[in-house]
Design a protein around this nucleic acid. Structure first.
Lengths: 306, 306
DNA sequence: CTCATCTTTCAGTATTTCTGATAGTAGCTA
DNA sequence: TAGCTACTATCAGAAATACTGAAAGATGAG
């Protein structure tokens, strides 16, 4: 226990500062008083600095010791942080958690669980990516992301696991000033044939693979549709009267309230199409502690608000 | 070199991270390769964490090691700071430097030298107090301050040492609209007898001891004078036309330029009274490194601007 | 004044780490 | 592919270091 300040010497120094005596410090550290006495004496000799005034029965910290104390405390705090982080890593905490979120779900509550996560694992580095459904799932399999917050529950091909963390309703919307609304009786339902001639704006991935999206809420399609890769784009197009689109209710609710959009009363879909919001991960890649905790937090939040 | 992270282990860990190999780290630390190998192996066993991938010829840091690196670097930086601070203290750096400044000298350049001081001794705690002349010198002898930046060079009674760090000119000023100015010929000098009936505002300490201020620029006094303990108060009183006062030129120059005050052309004092600006300290209390450095910086600044 | 408790010193012990040799291995070069 | 170089891992012995425990001196409280 020789030399200038190192972590052991700092521990001894602070134990003496805390307890106010060498003997008490020895008890606290599980040593014998003479060890503490010698350690401090060596330290003082090395530093050529008097740390404690021995004129009294108990050593009194000198002004210099008091000046060094804050920095010493900072040091042990940093050291403990390092060891805590190492422990977390050894217990399976990933060094980085990448979460990819479908754009339609930006508005859901995923920030608060992240806050809790950040408090529990301060050393965890988090990255949030926004990408459309299919890109998100591709990222998951590439290893570019560990978790995806998406809409459509993946096919049960066994490559992914998922956890339900919310519900969302898809509603068909159209601009208030759209011509279609004028041929609609005030309370009547909208039939297939009425809707088919109207242009539909469809949200899909950049990759063309999911054009043949079988079934699901997209089973009712118009003859002519335009494709966009981002719901925000779809919203803008619908707002400008270019056509109608299936969009999440929470996403368009402000515009419905603001009288800019109208919900289309499609027959058999009067209450919209209910979808699951899921956290998805790859079964091939074991999840780290952080990801598991995040899933648990999201699930718990969902349970409480349901 | 056992146990979880301590300062020695952090040093070894970072040496390996820096050099990229156990052998090179050993060379850097002046050890033998096997010592490094064993130390890292022990650390990994303790942490239950693989820090380096040994599949290749040279150890490759794992993601966990890379995640721990920043915190480890922070730690050694903190440790070095602690040791640097201890070294400075052992070399005589005071833990706290209290500087008392006469209010008239607030406007002089004492901040820049303090900036340099803060850069050189980051751990030095500085306190700046504003107090009138006599209070400042009393603080010096009480030990409440180490340095005083004051006007009047102290009496040569041997209790204080001083260093000249500037010059200042006292000028007699009065409000532009004061009646005295109307009975003054445009270019004429002002005699004693003309000035005596006019009320003088005198700056002095709260303590009444220095009423009998012999000689000096205050030798010319009016019959009636009011006392204030702060030049700012004096300035306000003079500005409102209550009387005239001796005040430092740099202190009142803005008001002279702004046509609010007029410099009184007193006979024999046409250029005002020149005073020294001194840094004063007690001879009974040896100065610390910081105070010495500050004095040197102030003196150098004075030399350059003279 | 006395006693309990604190600090310091010192010699011996015990633990720890370092050393140096050896073996095994990876990667480069011809 | 063979050979060479430089690296890591292992191990027993050596050296250094810190710890222990007893004894002595000193302080402050009652």
């Amino acid at each position: 226990m020789n030399g200038v300040f190192n972590s052991e010497m700092v521990a001894v120094f602070l134990a003496v500062m805390d307890t106010g005596s060498f003997s008490a410090a020895a008890r606290q550290l599980g040593r014998v008083p003479s060890a503490i006495s010698m350690a401090i004496a060596n330290l003082e000799a090395e530093l050529a600095l008097e740390l404690f005034d021995r004129s009294g029965r108990e050593p009194k910290p000198t002004a210099q010791a008091l000046a060094l104390e804050p920095q010493a405390r900072l040091l042990v705090a940093q050291l403990q942080q390092l060891n805590t982080q190492a422990l977390e890593l050894s217990q399976g905490l990933e060094t980085r958690l990448t979460l990819v979120i479908a754009p339609e779900l930006q508005s859901t509550q995923w920030v608060r669980p992240l806050q809790v996560l950040a408090r529990e694992y301060p050393s965890l580095e988090v990255q949030v990516i926004t990408a459309p459904q299919t890109d998100a799932l591709r990222l998951l399999h590439d290893g570019g992301a560990q978790l995806a917050l998406v809409f459509q529950r993946p096919a049960a091909d066994g490559r992914e696991s998922f956890q339900e963390v919310g519900r969302e309703t898809l509603v068909a919307v159209i601009a208030r000033q759209h011509l279609l609304l004028q041929e609609l009786s005030s309370q009547g339902q909208l039939s297939d044939t009425q809707l088919r001639p109207v242009r539909q704006v469809m949200v899909g991935s950049r990759s063309q693979n999911d054009v043949n999206n079988p079934g699901g809420p997209f089973c009712i399609t118009s003859e002519h549709y335009w494709r966009v890769d981002h719901p925000e784009s779809a919203l803008q197009m619908v707002l400008s009267g270019l056509g109608w689109a299936w969009l999440p209710r929470t996403f368009v609710q402000p515009y419905i309230n603001g009288q800019m959009l109208v919900e289309l009363p499609i027959a058999n879909f009067t209450n919209g199409e209910e979808l699951w919001v899921d956290l998805v991960w790859s079964r091939e890649r074991p999840l780290g502690l952080g990801a598991q905790k995040f899933i648990a937090l999201m699930a718990e939040q969902y349970r409480q608000t349901r």
